[in-house]
Write a protein that binds this DNA or RNA. Structure first.
Lengths: 205, 205, 205, 205
DNA sequence: TATGAATGAGAATTCATTCAT
DNA sequence: TATGAATGAATTCTCATTCAT
């Protein structure tokens, strides 16, 4: 394996690289793309500026990469929460729990996705659109299935999915601004489940 | 009469000032606070850099002022749409129509509020929080009244209002990204009305 | 007199022009050339910016002109105080009284000359050098005469004159920084007379 | 040993920092605070603009710092020249030699103090006042002692000290404008010693 | 790999000056 | 004459990026 550095070296490298990415998420989440400086990031990660450019080509590329990766992580968690269940109530519950879980324990990730990457670099616009689209689709798919099975009343599931996605985001952001998000998380999940089941006109109630 | 601050002169001044503010809204809405440069703004308004500073003290002050003014305008329109009606279905209809009307005919205003002012200057954070709070309260008030009158089932109206506000925003943003927002507006309003009445557990259906 | 505007007009013009020059002296004296803005000057004179450029070609020209005029005024006052007397003690007394009188009652003039025009525009450098040279010469001339008449002991009168000029300036600046310059002026004059007569080795003491 | 803040590196940094400070002194001395631009300074130091801001927080801070440091240096030199001697003639000689020595070999320092910092930034005003006060006090102290010992006749020593300080400054500035200051320095010192001993009414002559 | 000094393009802001009215 | 809106060159300062060590 000549092209590969030793485990020890790789581990150290990965350690530093990971530290910088986590620092980046925090800094971008807190300040947004433009207000965050490379200096902010390297100070948070406790490395030198030059080190940043050893691991990442530039600020924009890192940010877009971070956004993609983070978006994928959140989407997969939500989809996992949805897909492991069979009926709409459980699916919504599963997806929401996954979402709010991440929001509470990794707030920087959610903040990066929801506020850190708004109105920034052109190259991000398409990534952001894709993320929103995937997020909406994640909620639309169970709705379509439920509609087929007459578990919900007829409706424009696309629009319902958009509305649910927006509703969840807003509640999550308000939750994160609360003094103790963790303690309120469970109630928020329950309120949103109730809200959603009513909103999708769930016939099983 | 060597010089006269005549109506004509004053009117011209106001005209130019207004033009610059509108240009600013467009640029801020499109690029967000940080990415928008003074040069962008003055080019959009077709004036020189110095002219900007003749009318406005600095970029930040203008932005915050713009945000406040715009937020007030949107809030009043929505509240006007709500308060001129008596029952929840009509109130939601009125508020939504006002919101989507502005979104379609003054998209920059909505974009400035929803995306332009995210993660920007500290002095804006409180304005933004106030705006979101007022927006949520605008929806919560009719819910509380309806709950008192048993027009909706018992629920955490605060959370419902948050969810509705977020739902509306997301649908509006998706609408604005559509190829022809105007043609879809009516359907979007109707879908959201239906969504909302289900979501708030309106008992009159 | 076709080329001449009416008395009334000219008077008004002179009034305004004079007001601006006096305002300029005050502003330049207080802030120095660079820190003083045209806006400062016209506000102090209560006219519009355009008016400034009707009377004066530009900031630098006005400043240099002001400096020259002011320097001439001070020099003539000092020289008048010197030349109207016959012997060194009276000449020093006369010159000093004139200087300190102006310093106390027209502090802006002295401040403009001593501090307002330091290290500023190249075109002023020569004017300033000329002023200092003339000021020194004003004191050297009576010294030379006194030396010829053996009223003072042999010395390098040029150097003595430099030293006296510097001594007077410093005392004047300290006087102007005093809480009540006027009340201390007389004592300062007397101290400086004594100092000077000793310093020039006046033989008549 | 990927990187080492070795002596060599640190020395280089100090070297560059020192070079920039010296360049700053020269530029400020020549043009004064306002007329001196960052561009002037970095060109004189042959570095890029950013380098200036790597070493110094901003123009004003550097200038004030430079002024303080320079004032302290000059004051200590003069006081050292004074305090190492016992009687007024030797004290004046010592202080003057120190002053003129610096003026001739470090003209920028003296010019910065005497002309570069006049009528500039508010934060400098107090530093300048302190410097003048300390300078005057440096001359007043030996005068007070001499007066106690009856080595000079009764007089207002504060005023005499002011006058001497001003006299020295003026002669020094004239000396610096001479074609060959160094060659005239000795004579200037001697003339000023004579002038001063007469001016303070030294009784030992 | 890692460092941080050095760079310079670009941003915000100021202000002398012009000119249509 | 007088006005003040409009201009844009010049200035200060920031920050992403590079590179010698």
């Amino acid at each position: 394996m000549p092209y590969q550095s030793s485990d020890k070296t790789r581990q150290k490298k990965d350690t530093k690289r990971t530290a910088m990415m986590q620092a980046s998420v925090r800094v971008f989440a807190e300040k947004g793309y433009h207000a965050a400086t490379i200096r902010d990031i390297v100070q948070e990660a406790d490395v030198a500026v030059g080190t940043f450019y050893f691991y990442f080509p530039d600020k924009e590329t890192l940010f877009v990469h971070l956004y993609e990766e983070t978006a994928l992580f959140l989407l997969q968690a939500i989809q996992q929460g949805i897909q492991s269940r069979a009926t709409i109530p459980h699916q919504i519950t599963g997806g929401l729990q996954a979402y709010i879980n991440i929001a509470v324990y990794e707030p920087a990730i959610v903040q990066l996705l929801l506020v850190g990457g708004v109105g920034t670099v052109p190259s991000l616009a398409v990534k952001r659109a894709t993320f929103r689209e995937n997020l909406i689709m994640s909620w639309q798919r169970p709705l379509d299935t439920a509609l087929d099975n007459a578990h919900i009343l007829p409706q424009n599931t696309r629009r319902t999915a958009e509305a649910l996605a927006g509703a969840f985001d807003e509640v999550v952001l308000n939750l994160l601004n609360a003094p103790d998000p963790e303690s309120e998380a469970e109630a928020a999940v329950q309120d949103l489940i109730d809200f959603s089941l009513r909103a999708v006109a769930y016939t099983g109630l």
